[in-house]
């Protein structure tokens, strides 16, 4: 008994001290974590609840639990399926073009030359342009009244007549994709340039001493260093672009005839124009599930690739 009391008395200060040292980092983290909890986690949970209810702001009497009815409606919603296909198309076309052009730019900037700082500032400028403005600017460039693009495309023989491609169901998706590529090239260029600059020079010298030619050095040093960065950037960027609905909302509003509707812009339209929060939340759950599946698929592929080599 006495021994136990003694031990407790002896431990108490140590316990307090360790409590303080445990609490200290969390105190510094708490403003950020509380904000995220209140403005992301709580709305997320509320949104999951909405997905199984009727929540229509314009129709306050039609309320209540509807079970899986929204999800059944989604399965039979032709706009949803169109938006799903469009989302894939939009994401991968934007991603590949941004990546290839961004890689090219990074390789061009990966050496010293006169005026490099100025050139870098200019070619990275599109990143600073607010995305809605980049959307509006390209919408105007594609407009035959004030923009040159339709006339150029016509002159090149790519368009039969100088019309607005944003109004053409077959071509409209290229409008937001073009704006997205223009706006997103700097992101890839900067990320890849940072990775290139982190390659230690000794690696190239060692490879040269071992008799590696230019091609072998590129393959075994540059690529070997770049691939991990590129892989993670591509993975994260895919998800980011798939969630990025601003340009479609600004440039076409999903039209003509939902030909450019992608999932985020569809969710926004249902929530904003129809004020049907229940259906919008159910669509959001589907988008979240798809992104989750994609991430798992990629991680699994990575694991298999690793064990294969």
């Amino acid at each position: 008994m006495a021994g136990r009391a003694l031990r407790l008395a002896g431990e108490a200060p140590a316990g307090r001290r360790s409590f303080r040292s445990i609490a200290e980092p969390w105190t510094y983290l708490s403003p950020t974590l509380v904000l995220i909890a209140l403005l992301m986690l709580v709305p997320l949970i509320v949104g999951i609840g909405f997905a199984f209810q009727n929540v229509q702001i314009l129709n306050p009497f039609k309320r209540g639990f509807v079970g899986l009815a929204h999800f059944q409606a989604i399965a039979n919603d032709p706009i949803f399926w169109k938006a799903l296909v469009n989302t894939l198309w939009w994401t991968f076309a934007s991603l590949i073009l941004q990546f290839v052009l961004g890689l090219g730019l990074a390789l061009l900037l990966w050496r010293e030359f006169k005026g490099k700082r100025l050139v870098q500032a200019i070619v990275f400028l599109p990143w600073a342009v607010p995305s809605f403005l980049s959307g509006l600017t390209f919408a105007w460039l594609f407009n035959p009244v004030v923009g040159p693009f339709p006339h150029w495309l016509h002159a090149l023989g790519l368009l039969a007549s100088p019309d607005n491609i944003l109004a053409d169901p077959a071509l409209a998706m290229w409008g937001p994709i073009t704006a997205n590529v223009w706006w997103g090239i700097p992101f890839f260029a900067i990320t890849i340039l940072a990775a290139l600059q982190s390659i230690p020079n000794e690696m190239y010298e060692a490879a040269a001493i071992d008799g590696a030619g230019m091609l072998a050095r590129f393959r075994h040093v540059t690529l070997a260093y770049l691939v991990p960065t590129i892989a993670i950037t591509l993975l994260l960027r895919t998800i980011w672009i798939a969630n990025f609905g601003d340009l479609v909302v600004v440039m076409t509003g999903g039209g003509p005839a939902n030909q450019t509707q992608i999932l985020p812009s569809y969710i926004f339209t249902v929530a904003f124009r129809k004020l049907d929060f229940g259906y919008a939340s159910a669509l959001s759950m589907v988008l979240l599930a798809l992104l989750f599946l994609y991430a798992i698929l990629i991680l699994e592929m990575r694991r298999r690739l690793r064990s294969a080599f």
Binding site: L39, M40, V42, P43, L44, V46, G47, F50, V55, L236, I239, W240, N243, G245, P264, I267, F268, A271, F272, F277, A280, S281, S284, M285, L287, L288, L291
Partner: peptide, 11 residues
């Protein structure tokens, strides 16, 4: 990487 667009209605 969270789709913020899905929080618009609940917010």
């Amino acid at each position: 990487i969270f789709p913020l667009v899905m929080l618009i209605a609940p917010i």
